[in-house]
Every structure is written in C-alpha cells, then in structure tokens.
Design a protein around this nucleic acid. Structure first.
Lengths: 345, 345
DNA sequence: TTGTAAGCGTTATCAT
DNA sequence: ATGATAACGCTTACAA
C-alpha cells in the first residue's frame, strides 16, 4: 500500500465527463426532478465509469444530515461479550440500516465516560441519531439527548419524557410463564434479576407479581450476584421454597442449568428454569432451555425506521413490536413433591 | 423531540467567545505550535463552555482524513450471531479506536454485495481504512483494496500481496494439542473444519498434519456439515477410528459435547474434544471445553495500530501477536481402550 | 432543463 | 503569535 496513485474522483470530474454542470449531477443523485432522462442517463453512466459516489463527509457539511446511527454501550468487554442479545441486535440493525444507506457507529464505554461520548459524537456530528439500550432508572442520557437536541430512541420499556421507545409487547409473558409452571404443579416461583438498576426491572417485577398473585402462586425475587464465589450456589441458597425460576438473562440461565446439578440440584427434576431471552445458547445448554424468544430483529428494524423519521424531522410515537413467545424445551418439568422441596434448606 | 432549539455551535462561535480568529482555535485543537499558552487556555475554556467539538465531517472535507475504520462482515445474521469471536473482536476494537478518536463502522453483507459495499464506503469516504476478516482463498478483497488504494489489514494467516496481516502466533499450537492428546494415549486425531474456503484452513491443515506425523499420530480431516439432519451424528459417523477431535469453531465444539452423549458417544470418555477458540461459551458447556485461547483483544489492538500508521502514510509490515494458550478443562481425557474404540462404526 | 454561485465548518497557506 | 483567505466536495436556491 503506497501513495494512492488514483486521484480522488469528484463530482466535477463526473460532470465534466458527462458534459454537464456539477449541480446536474447532484440533482440526479438526490432524486430531484428537473433533469431530462437523457442527461440523467449520461450522468449515471459517467459516474459509473469513474466509480464515483457522493462524498459522505461533504454531504454532511452541506447540511444533508442523517446518515449514521450511534450505538454507545456502557458495558465492560466482559459483560458485553457474554450477552448474545447484542449479537442479535447488531446483526438486526445492519440490514435496515444498509437499506437506507446509514452507517452504524459502535463503541463500548465505561459508565463514567458515557455522557462524554454522547456529547462528543453529537458535537462532532459523527452521528445523527442515537439508539439507547440498557436504559437505567433515572437515566441521565434521556435528559442529555434532549438537551443536545439529538434524535434518539430507546429499546425497552417506555419511560416518561420525550424520547420515543421501541418496546416488546410482553404484557402477558409472565402470565404465560406462570401458567406453564402451574400446569406443571409449581406453586412457588422466583424471578431472578440480572442488573437491578435497569429501567425495565421494576415494571417486570410488578407484572411478575401480578401474574403470580392472580394465579395463586407465591412470588419471590432474587438478584444474581456475579461476585459471589459460586454465584449459582449463592443464588440457589437464596431461593426459599421456589421450585421454579424465571431468569432475566439467558447466559445466566445457561450457567445455572450447567452448574446446578454439580452442586446437588437437578434441573429440571428439582428446579425448573425459564430464560427471559433466547438465542442459540439455549440450544447448546443441557437441558435445553425453556425460554422466551423476543423479536430482536424486528425491534431493531422498528427502531431504525423510527429514527429515520425523527432525523427527517417527522413526529414519531412509541412503537410496540410483537410479543415474546414461550418456547418450551427441557428445562421445565413437573414440580417435585412437596416432600422433596422441603428437604432443601 | 422537536426542532433542535440548540443551534449547532461552530468554531466561529468559539473563536468569538475567546476573542480570537477561527484559525487560532483550529491550531490549538490540532496541536500545532505558534499559539501562546495564554490564548490556548482561553480558547480551550471557551470550547469547553460551549461544548464545542471539531466537526467530524468538516475535518474530512478539508483533507484531514483517517478517522474511521470499516468492518464489513460477509456472514449471515445466523452465523455471525453464533460466533462469540466477533463479540470479542468488536469489544476489542472499540477501546484502541476510542483512544485514537476513530469511529468504527460496522455492517453485515451477503457475499455477493461485499465488493459493492467496500467500493461504496471507500468512494463515499465514509471510512478511511478497512479491517478484513474471514479472508478466503483467492479473496477478491485483496486486489480490491489494492485497486482502491485503501489502507487495509487482515486478521489471520498472511497471504501473498501487499495487504498487511495480523497473525496469531500459533505455529506450535497443534504440537501442543497433539502432545496433550498423546499424553492421554490418543493415537488417532481428526481435525474438524468449519468453513473450508477460509485462507487459514490449508495452513492449519498442513501444520496439523505435520504435528501429528512428527508424533506418530494418525491425522484425519473432517468438515462440519451444518445442513445435515443431525450435524453432530453426521460428523461422528465420519470420524473413522479417531478418539479425539480438534474443532475449529468453539460453538461447534459446544454443540458436539452437548449432543454427542445423546447419540451414544460419551465425552470425554469415548471422545476427547479440543476447541480451537475460547470464550465464555467454553465454560457453560458440559463437560467444560478444553480449548485454545487466542489473544483476540491483542490482535484487535495491533490491527488498529497498524492501520493508523498506514493511514498516516507510514510503511508497515505484518505483525504477529502472542500465541494461543491451551486451556485444559474437562473435554479431554485418556483415550478409550482400543477395544472400545473399534466398537464404533 | 441546465448552470451559477453561495454556503456548510474545518484546515492550511500565507501574510501580518 | 495571530488572522485573513482560499481550498475541500457537495447541496441548494436562484438565475438563465
């Protein structure tokens, strides 16, 4: 790789070759009317011949904004890498973005630099919109994007304020899970939470409690503690009499079903496990995980469409996408006899 | 989100507030000399106060190139999503990129649009360099980036031609694996390949064969067929007398250890499994996978550094990063008795 | 239908 | 040490 012998080809070169003015070329490439089909064809031919594409940066400088989406993820490499949700999200974003010619700018940050990065990217006009994930209680980013005037959408439960959200319709998901479990004889179910600070947590807690109460099920709540010496043992020790758990994170669910038998709790015979998320991971776990499949790709596509409208200055409102589906696999089974259950501490 | 009430702040505004000319501001922000420390401080204060950041696009238009890396992955959503390597790669790229202020543009493409996308992104000056992954035999991208004059680096085995590579030093990895296996009494080992077209495949084949031969081990080769009705069964049926396999893909290895027992092959008692890659997946698999850990983050960092130099016009040469380390876990064990082995078809 | 010219926000050159 | 001024490549009124 040495000096690019190929001088950069500009709109002027194309215009020259086609025997027209630069603005004519611009018109054609921006789908504006008022240019004869004949010249348009000539122009397109010239552009093709020269392999010319309108310069991304120049367009932006001249006011034609809106061609890149910023995704700033405040997670450690470790927790980012362990979450197949992000793979699905990234993969799901690229297709709709490509369709409208947008770029995806991605970065991971430490929580304390987060605001910085949003400011920087917006200030630099590196991106034209943000997709917010992992929205937390009182998330400062909501006020921030508002203050910046940056188009933004969030994935997850709606929050008060002007930032539009894309939400998975899962109002009945817990009901479905609980019914599946009661059908198997379970009477005490605990919900296992991953990251307690996230905004959707409380809403889920509430719906979980309601669904349990409505069906005469005793509801418990437990938080996963990754810093424990043996997080699975730690968790199982805090389960009380629960014979089934619903786990927010698929990866954690996979860890539980893998490790529980090694510390004396058979899955699903003694403990049924449902994962709130689903991916290929559910199928390499043994027993295979009973899980809720969320329409991640659909969420991504919806969010992109929403942001695109926002960038064009249109008004948008919160969107809902199709609900979670319960995929019954092998990690749920009939509840153990009461006798068995009470044997556990 | 309504009309941005906040007018965009420009270098002119900063200059005005600091009581200097725009060029002075520019000088300060580009580390150029010839501006007194006093004014510099004043300028920085003004910029801070206004939250001003140099406009990304404008910089590019005015010739200051080189601030975004393009990563174009020619995989289906499915195969992309199943490969934890990419999570590690993405996570590993963001940190060094952030340190030098570069953006990462990511997309997934179908193989037949791949060349298009490279041309487009380069032509648009959307990116200033490319990182090539999944390099195939006779990969057309090598000639393409050369033709475009685009700085590029590839991850994986070096290939002839001017594109610099970042390679994991794994010359002795197979030897290490084979020695581990012979130490356990294995005498026939098969290497399981994922995607046969990839450029590193042949080199690995060669090294595998050599390492086996040198140690008196019978080497076999088998290709994973994802389209088979039961890919694991299909593979095991083609193993001949092998008592151990070395699997290119960690995900496939995980699938094998999960499913093999269900079709009558106990791991590791009857079959030892080594994965060529490692991630958290290896630890939720049961038995836990004996695997090679590759320094993905180090590769990413090295590639970024290399590209940065390339963009600045410096000459670069191929880089090697530290080798794979064999992590012995539970999926390898003493070879079964010959008698047992011959019972399998 | 086509061309001219004035921005867009920055950097670079060249005076001062 | 500082400041005009001309690029950079494109879009977009507006004029022809």
């Amino acid at each position: 790789m040495t000096e690019p012998t190929t001088k950069r080809v500009t709109i002027a070169a194309v215009a020259r070759l086609a025997g027209v003015s630069p603005s004519a070329v611009s018109h054609v490439f921006n789908g504006r009317p008022n240019v004869s089909e004949a010249t348009a064809a000539r122009i397109r031919a010239a552009a093709d011949e020269l392999h010319w594409r309108p310069n991304f940066a120049s367009r932006k400088v001249s006011g034609q904004g809106g061609r890149s989406l910023g995704l700033v993820i405040a997670r450690s490499r470790e927790t980012f890498g362990r979450d197949p949700f992000f793979m699905r999200l990234l993969a799901g974003l690229t297709e709709p973005l490509a369709e409208i010619g947008w770029a995806l700018s991605l970065t991971l940050v430490h929580a304390d630099e987060e605001e910085q990065v949003y400011r920087q990217w917006w200030g630099e006009q590196r991106v034209d919109a943000f997709l917010l994930v992992d929205v937390r209680d009182d998330d400062p980013r909501l006020a921030l994007v508002e203050q910046l005037g940056a188009p933004a959408a969030l994935l997850g439960a709606p929050v008060p304020g002007p930032v539009a959200s894309v939400t998975v319709r899962d109002g009945s998901a817990f009901a479905e899970a609980i019914e599946h479990l009661t059908g198997l004889g379970h009477r005490t179910v605990t919900r296992v939470t991953d990251a307690p600070g996230l905004a959707h947590t409380r809403a889920r807690d509430r719906r979980f409690r309601r669904a349990a109460k409505d069906r005469g099920v005793t509801a418990g709540l437990a938080t996963w503690n990754p810093d424990a010496e043996d997080p699975v043992a730690d968790l199982l020790g805090r389960l009380g009499g629960a014979t089934a758990i619903i786990v927010d994170s698929e990866t954690i669910a996979a860890e539980i079903v893998a490790h529980a038998p090694e510390i004396g709790v058979r899955v699903p015979e003694q403990l049924s496990v449902i994962a709130w998320e689903d991916s290929w991971v559910s199928s390499i776990a043994r027993p295979r995980l009973t899980a809720f499949d969320a329409p991640v790709e659909e969420s991504a596509r919806t969010a992109v469409a929403l942001l695109e409208r926002l960038v064009r200055g249109e008004a948008v409102e919160a969107q809902t996408v199709s609900g979670r589906r319960l995929l019954v696999r092998e990690s749920t089974a009939p509840a153990p006899h009461t006798h068995d259950r009470e044997e556990r501490p």
